[in-house]
Design a protein around this nucleic acid. Sequence first.
DNA 1: GTAAGATAGTCAACGTGGTTGACCAAATAG
DNA 2: CTATTTGGTCAACCACGTTGACTATCTTAC
Lengths: 156, 156
Amino acid sequence: MATPDRPGFALPLLLLAGFRTLIDDLHAELARQGHAELRPAHGFVLQAVGPAGTTASDLGQRLGVSKQAAGKTVDRLVALGYLERVDDPVDARRKLVRMTARGHDGLRRSAIVFDELRDSWAATLGADRVAAIEDDLRRMVPADVFHLDVPGWFGG
Amino acid sequence: MATPDRPGFALPLLLLAGFRTLIDDLHAELARQGHAELRPAHGFVLQAVGPAGTTASDLGQRLGVSKQAAGKTVDRLVALGYLERVDDPVDARRKLVRMTARGHDGLRRSAIVFDELRDSWAATLGADRVAAIEDDLRRMVPADVFHLDVPGWFGG
DNA sequence: GTAAGATAGTCAACGTGGTTGACCAAATAG
DNA sequence: CTATTTGGTCAACCACGTTGACTATCTTAC
């Protein structure tokens, strides 16, 4: 209703809507699988922490936000049981951020569900069309933007 | 780096990155054209206000947020000179929210710049590929999600 | 014509996800 | 050994959302 069949707005709106659709579907399914508290941003954070773990400063750099912001996000994920902080044995300043078992579970399930959602798109659109969308976007999106998993860019 | 050539994450990340690329480019150009304070969300809000104007409650419904949130957003846009509030002559409860001249200018320029950006994608990808992306997404995205211009859904 | 209910706007408190600036402790370079 | 860099945290702040409570006004029903 508020929307635009104005030509200029269609493409960005469709990209956003496509992303949102995927994320909504993902979280509906994750909630069913015992991860109701996992918010859209959290998947990207877990992804950025990675299996090896990292530090708050490094996490901030990966996500393109300040170390303070990264620290606060880690606090929340720690409170939810997805991450834990451990002292670095070789550098007393550092605190390693690592995924807990629950964190690993959440991330693993996210990837699986995303795969299923992609398959369901492929079932409607055709696998080649989905692959074509991916190829086209990969060509149009600068690598540094593609490689940025940052959640909060939208409102920043 | 933090990213995923994990298969499941590629499609959503590409959709997000594509959207972000467009929005970043839009705002870089808008800043050059005298609208540096216009944030990503604001375009959607102006769009939702529309040429006829509306009320805060109605705006909230259009954007899928509470009337209070819509009211606060209107406050900010009023402070920036993009919107104005006027009393409704026939209903003393209502305050009409309308675009100012600056608001119209910002929205008009957004649409023009988006068109140019789409053209630049078409120049690289081919017009038919861009149209195909749009068609595919239009088919995969539920109408109510496509028709939702809401900015803040991401972190809600 | 008035009592009751729905609707518009606002205020306050709060949560989340960001920002800067300041600061301390620990590591590293000269 | 001193000077600098780096990692983490604290505090204050901003944008954007939430719910709950409240007032003023309009609408409906009796």
